[in-house]
Design a protein around this nucleic acid. Structure first.
Lengths: 175, 175
DNA sequence: TGGATATTTATGGGATAGCATGGGTTTATT
DNA sequence: AATAAACCCATGCTATCCCATAAATATCCA
């Protein structure tokens, strides 16, 4: 990974800085290998979506709904920090939320090649072994064991079809 | 913004200068050993979050809701002072809070290796023995006995689920 | 347009620096 | 002088950096 902001940058770099950066959406799914050291390449398009936040890496924690990891960018995390800050400093709710949201998440930095190291405990929790599947979900993404994701995908697809789910208009549909 | 990832100092320096230092967020949990002298390494990422603080150290006091220690940086301590100011100046509540928060808090400085010495009475109050667990909670952090934190974590998780707690104001903390 | 050349991506492995940890020695404190 | 606190040095371990490769894309130029 190289982020050059000077010199004669080609169309690609430009697109990275302007085109994709504006969108900043995590799309499609990619399956990459996890080496002995626990390193995985974050899909290049995901990295592009992070654009200016590349240096801060990504924030990851264990999902409470699925057997997978949830990931998003640092800005999101910072925003959550601000919001929690508006609670009473020592309220129970604030504490409970902060403990689960912050206490259990990890900031992962990119190495020179655009990889991150998945902590062993998180890998285990998500059942990730030889390879990991990155699933783009717009503003966030998930990291799955390839097998488990296959099941998940089928179930999700079935649910959409059966219930006739659609994308809600405007605002934030549900939390 | 110029983002340079190459060169002698490498990403680490940049990360320290821009990434962490700019937005001090305490993340994840780390368990470190306490030696005979009462010294513990403060997690490196926590130290990085404090980086720009003039006073190189942390402020710690005994939590009055949990069996743990609460830790802050100096800036946060200032802010607590401000918040307490909004109480009636001579109210009992103000007095009580100020007494516990300020009267019982200790400032701990780092040694050359990034450790602090936990005062014996605080360790005892929090039930900390051989090792201590640092829990990042965004703008503040806590220090626990590893065992007790394990329970606490589960309880917090349950509370979030049962009460349906979410990050206030549209932030979809996780889901 | 098509083939040669350069980039980018994903991957692997060795070298190195940083972190957590332990122990000793000097410097305050009273 | 006695005790504790701060400082300095030494150590594994592991995370991080750096270099190298192959495959896939993109770019260039005749």
């Amino acid at each position: 990974m190289v982020v050059f902001c000077r010199g004669r940058e080609g169309p690609r770099v430009f697109r990275t800085l302007c085109g994709w950066a504006a969108m900043a959406l995590f799309l499609s799914t990619y399956t990459n290998k996890v080496d002995k050291k626990g390193r995985v390449s974050v899909p290049a398009s995901f990295r592009a979506a992070l654009a200016e936040q590349l240096v801060q890496g990504i924030v990851v924690f264990c999902s409470h709904q699925h057997d997978c990891l949830e990931g998003f960018d640092w800005a999101k995390m910072d925003e959550i920090g601000d919001r929690l800050d508006h609670y009473d400093l020592f309220s129970d709710d604030q504490d409970d939320l902060a403990t689960t949201v912050f206490g259990e998440s990890v900031q992962l930095f990119f190495d020179g090649e655009g990889r991150v190291v998945l902590p062993a405990d998180l890998m285990e929790a998500a059942g990730i072994g030889e390879s990991a599947t990155f699933v783009g979900l717009g503003r966030k993404f998930q990291i799955w064991s390839p097998d488990r994701f296959e099941e998940r995908k089928n179930r999700a697809r079935a649910a959409v079809r059966d219930k006739g789910l659609t994308v809600p208009k405007g605002g934030e549909g549900r939390s």
